[in-house]
Design a binder for these strands. Structure first.
Lengths: 161, 161
DNA sequence: GAACCACTGGGCAATCTGCCTACCGGAACG
DNA sequence: CGTTCCGGTAGGCAGATTGCCCAGTGGTTC
């Protein structure tokens, strides 16, 4: 169970890593003005805490040939949740899946090679008995790409009091 | 403009990096059974291509003290789009924002410290004249966390023909 | 006071990086 | 058919970084 909260130094470290991921421990310690061992210890702790899950490559689906993104809200037949999850897991174009409150039962993020191709993807997604209905919203612009820095900064000042 | 598509080696490299991010160029070349220079060249190309945007730390908002995630669909007053975008950018709990087709005009991902705190966040989000209406879906489970590996593998076999 | 903790500053061997050269086979081109 | 280009292989080298260790210090807790 992670001890929630990060202090100001953790925050600066994460922001630094987010801005310049290729940075090493040594260079980070120089930038932050602390000893190398401190940075090393903080990074170890942040990772075992689960605050930092990893440093996976940030892959752009568009550059992979999938420039179209959409969000689909799915309505699921009672008791079919697990089957639908398993089904959606097998579709590579499903990048993310959530179960939610509200009108729909699930929300998933899809990508496709084109608007036309999106039809194929949706057909594959909803081509499963457990899914009653789907409503899709195509993404036009992405004014705020997935970001974490502002939240980290917020958490850092909260933690630091 | 990126040359879309990746070949089988690119695919294996990205998957390897995704699975073991801390791996170095040298170790990667050993795992892939190719020369170090090749891995170096591929990584350089993938990054200048934009296929790999970077290696930022994958931060878990829950571990930061924000365990509640929600998606909000926003309806925007005509012509207020830019202002709303600017407004939402200033809210740290807004992790992501898209403009979409369909009933709503925008879709954003929010996090909060608790269900109660979510009310505060939503109030802040919709507390802006340009926003006509908001409908929020709280995430209960996340059966498929944001993933890219299946798509990379798909793109790799497509590219390899 | 004593124990504990995080941080500092230093040192060490082993490793990796960035960069370079030389060479090879296949593909494209005149 | 010969030349050039390109991506990959194999190797080498100096310099930087890593992982790990130690001893000392200041602040906190009990």
């Amino acid at each position: 169970m992670p001890t929630d909260g990060i202090d100001e130094l953790d925050g600066r470290l994460i922001v630094l890593l987010a801005r310049e991921p290729r940075i090493g421990v040594l260079e980070a310690s120089r930038r932050l003005g602390v000893a190398r061992g401190t940075v090393q210890a903080r990074m170890d702790r942040l990772q075992s805490n689960g605050v930092i899950r990893g440093f996976g490559p940030d892959v752009d689906p568009a550059a992979l040939g999938y420039p179209v993104t959409a969000f689909a809200t799915l309505e699921i037949k009672q008791g079919q949740g697990a089957d639908v999850r398993a089904h959606l897991t097998t579709v590579p174009e499903v990048l993310e899946l959530h179960t939610t409150t509200g009108h729909g039962d699930m929300l998933c993020r899809l990508v496709a090679r084109s608007n036309a191709d999106l039809q194929r993807v949706i057909d594959r997604v909803v081509g499963f008995e457990g899914i009653v209905r789907a409503s899709t919203a195509i993404v036009m612009e992405n004014p705020v790409p997935l970001r974490i820095i502002p939240l980290v900064e917020q958490a850092a000042v909260d933690g630091a009091g």
